[in-house]
């Protein structure tokens, strides 16, 4: 077999490099995974199940799933609309808008939490007023949702944008001359090519939200049975000296995240097959 490195490293040296890299990645990634699996399954599946079924863990997982789910839905809708606006319309400030979309990735998530608390906390003007109306945001579910939306903003936008760029507006015109109305154009011409990208963006944002810690720990108030999400629950269990409970919930998050990443890849490949 010829390799690029052959000229530089003799065969023996090449083997050493390969083994070293393998050991490095293995130690870095596989060992912790093994540790997690070992602790999570230490008492067998029954014990794992009992740990997960404890009301605290169950509620934390449930809260994490539904808030990530709602966030993914909103993201799919608004992310697609944002990508549409960026691609299809020329307007002053478009470049600035595009930069704003990426900004959340650059902001440390803890800082995100702090910003949200300052704005929506009971001491903040907006947050105080909203709480007065019976709509508390910080230290409540809406705060969690806002934090998740903030940190996952670019996912759907950046997934849909390239597909939209590829789409020729003449396709819509062709559909129109063939007798299609606006609804038929949207449902049959515009949406189908976008769907895999929208879904993969949504799934990736969901996977990312499952593990969100920094912003949530600041904004949610971490009230058990009310605003305590799974990642913060895990942190609490570690602090409280019960690594088994932490490992069990972690295992669930891990398996889900891996499965979802695969699903997203599958969707992306699916959309790639028929692309021109």
């Amino acid at each position: 077999m010829t390799r690029i490195g052959v000229a530089l490293a003799p065969e023996r040296g090449g083997r050493v490099v390969r083994l070293a890299v393998l050991a490095y990645i293995g130690a870095l990634v596989l060992l912790p995974l093994a540790a997690l699996a070992q602790h999570g399954l230490a008492g067998g599946l029954g014990a794992l199940w009992r740990t997960l079924a404890s009301p605290g863990a169950l509620h934390a997982l449930w809260l994490t799933f539904w808030s990530a789910g709602v966030m993914a839905l909103i993201n799919a809708l608004m992310g697609t609309a944002t990508a549409w606006a960026l691609v299809r319309y020329a307007f002053p400030g478009r470049a600035a808008l595009s930069a704003l979309v990426d900004l959340p990735f650059a902001i440390p998530t803890l800082v995100t939490g702090v910003m949200l608390v300052l704005l929506y906390g009971p001491q903040g003007r907006v947050g105080g007023w909203l709480a007065g109306q019976g709509w508390p945001v910080a230290f409540a579910a809406p705060g969690i949702l806002l934090a998740l939306l903030f940190v996952t903003l670019p996912f759907v936008v950046r997934a849909v944008e390239p597909v939209l760029l590829e789409q020729d507006p003449a396709e819509e015109e062709a559909a129109r001359t063939l007798g299609a109305g606006d609804l038929a154009i949207f449902l049959r011409v515009l949406l189908p090519p976008l769907l895999p990208a929208v879904l993969s963006g949504g799934v990736r944002s969901f996977a990312r939200a499952l593990g969100e810690f920094g912003s949530i720990v600041v904004v949610s108030g971490n009230i058990p049975y009310r605003t305590l999400t799974a990642p913060v629950y895990i942190f609490g269990e570690i602090e409280a000296g019960s690594p088994e409970a932490a490992a069990a919930v972690s295992l669930v998050l891990l398996l889900l995240a891996v499965a979802l990443t695969w699903a997203a890849r599958l969707l992306e490949r699916l959309s790639g097959v028929r692309g021109v």
Binding site: D168, E173, L178
Partner: peptide, 18 residues
């Protein structure tokens, strides 16, 4: 445009890719 009974062919085909 949809009720003119006109067939239109575009330079870059504009076929529905999916």
């Amino acid at each position: 445009a949809r009720s003119r009974g006109v067939g239109f062919v575009f330079q870059h085909y504009a076929l529905f890719r999916h």
